[in-house]
Simulated assay, not measured.
Amino acid sequence: MEQISIGSVVKLKSGSPLMTVTGYGTKYGAGSILKTLVEDKEQVKCQWFDATGTLQEDTFPVASLQLA
């Protein structure tokens, strides 16, 4: 089975736009800083374009995503 990695196209299991994984690691504290390229892949940083064509970015738990 293919695993989620940088460059993977994913979506939320509950439904979402298609998103591209741009980083992974652990989200520290309440902030949105994501340490990338570490072994612990708890959180995944994704980018996507919304309905207006604006680039969006956020972090998601790996368990909430599936490969598109």
Rank of each mutant, 00 (worst) to 15 (best):
G23I: 06
Q66L: 09
I4Q: 00
F60H: 11
C46R: 00
Y28L: 02
G29V: 07
K35Y: 01
S16N: 10
K45G: 13
I6S: 08
E42A: 14
V21G: 00
P61K: 13
A51F: 09
E57P: 03
A68E: 13
I6Y: 06
Q47H: 12
A30H: 04
T22F: 04
L67Y: 04
Q66S: 10
E57S: 13
G25C: 06
V38F: 08
K41S: 12
G7W: 05
K13T: 07
T36C: 11
P61D: 14
S64E: 14
I6C: 06
Y28C: 03
L55R: 10
I4T: 01
G25M: 05
G7I: 07
Q3S: 15
T36P: 00
G15W: 09
G25N: 03
L34A: 05
K27T: 00
G23W: 05
P61E: 14
K45E: 13
Q3P: 01
D50K: 09
P17A: 05
G53Q: 06
T59F: 09
T54A: 03
S8F: 00
V21T: 00
I33A: 11
T22W: 02
V44T: 08
V38R: 14
L65T: 10
D58Y: 14
S64M: 12
G23P: 01
G25R: 02
G7Q: 07
E42K: 15
Q66P: 01
G23V: 03
V38G: 14
K11V: 01
Y28N: 08
Q47F: 06
Q3E: 15
E2R: 03
S14D: 11
Q3M: 13
L55Y: 03
D50R: 10
K27H: 00
D58H: 11
V38N: 12
T52W: 15
L34G: 04
V9G: 01
E39I: 02
T22Y: 05
C46I: 12
D40W: 01
M19S: 09
Y24K: 01
E42N: 15
L55Q: 13
Y28W: 05
Q56F: 01
L65V: 11
G25I: 01
Q3T: 15
G25F: 02
Q47T: 13
I4E: 00
A63Y: 08
A63W: 06
G29T: 09
S8M: 00
L37N: 12
S16P: 08
T22V: 14
L67M: 08
S5H: 11
P17C: 05
L12G: 04
Q3L: 14
P17N: 09
A51W: 08
G53H: 05
S64A: 15
V9A: 05
M19A: 12
T26G: 07
V62W: 02
Y24H: 08
Q43C: 03
V44K: 01
K41Q: 15
Q43A: 02
M1A: 14
T52D: 15
K13I: 07
F49I: 11
F60I: 10
K41I: 05
T52S: 15
K35E: 02
V38L: 13
E42V: 13
A63I: 06
S32H: 04
A30N: 08
M1S: 15
Y24F: 10
D40S: 07
F49N: 15
C46S: 02
F60W: 13
L37S: 12
V62M: 11
K41F: 03
D50E: 11
L37W: 07
P61R: 14
E57Y: 08
